Amino acid sequence: MSIFGYLTYRNIHLTRSLAEQQADRQLMKMILIETVLVIISYIQYGVNGAYTIITAGMVKDNNRLSIENFVATLSNLMCYLYFSGSCYMFMLSSSRFRAAVKRLCCCLRATNQINPNI
């Protein structure tokens, strides 16, 4: 993610019109928010996996197994936060993305009609 973010940032600086519109700042905000979202949604999955591996040889009662299964289910569900949350984070951080979503959802298309002067 960081490599492609850097390459995109460099490409925006080479494109004069995008650099004048400050698209690089919006891109940096979007990449930083995306990185935080990845960390939040996946770090707990790794911690739960490490806990499961470490305690695999222990004898566990039914109550502890139920709690561990519940935590595993929650950590699996939190991984989906990345996929659903990225859209919302992009909408919060980028005015361009909000405008594009608004155009698509509201069908606000500019008509290219020429009205003759009669």
Rank of each mutant, 00 (worst) to 15 (best):
M1L: 03
M1T: 03
S2W: 03
F4P: 04
F4K: 04
G5E: 04
Y6T: 07
Y6G: 09
Y9E: 14
N11Q: 14
N11S: 15
I12G: 13
L14H: 15
T15G: 03
T15E: 15
R16K: 13
L18M: 08
A19Y: 07
E20M: 04
Q21F: 01
D24W: 03
R25D: 11
R25Q: 12
Q26S: 12
Q26I: 00
M28I: 12
M30R: 06
M30Q: 11
E34F: 10
T35R: 02
V36L: 11
I39Y: 08
S41L: 00
S41W: 00
I43P: 01
I43H: 09
Q44Y: 08
Y45H: 05
G49W: 06
A50D: 11
T52N: 14
T52M: 11
I54F: 15
I54K: 11
T55N: 11
T55C: 05
T55K: 05
A56L: 01
M58K: 13
K60Q: 12
D61E: 04
R64A: 13
E68R: 13
N69P: 06
F70G: 14
F70Q: 12
F70A: 15
V71T: 15
A72F: 13
T73G: 09
S75P: 03
S75G: 05
L77V: 00
M78G: 05
L81T: 11
L81I: 11
Y82D: 06
Y82L: 13
F83W: 10
F83L: 12
S86T: 10
S86D: 06
C87P: 00
C87F: 14
Y88C: 00
F90Q: 07
F90E: 05
L92E: 07
L92Q: 08
S93Q: 07
S93N: 10
S94Y: 02
S95K: 08
S95V: 04
F97P: 07
R98Y: 04
V101Q: 04
K102V: 03
R103A: 15
R103P: 07
R103K: 15
L104I: 02
L104N: 14
C105E: 13
C106Q: 14
C106S: 13
C107M: 10
C107W: 09
R109S: 11
A110F: 13
A110Q: 13
Q113Y: 14
I114E: 14
N115Q: 10
N115C: 05
P116F: 08
P116E: 06
N117G: 04
I118Q: 13
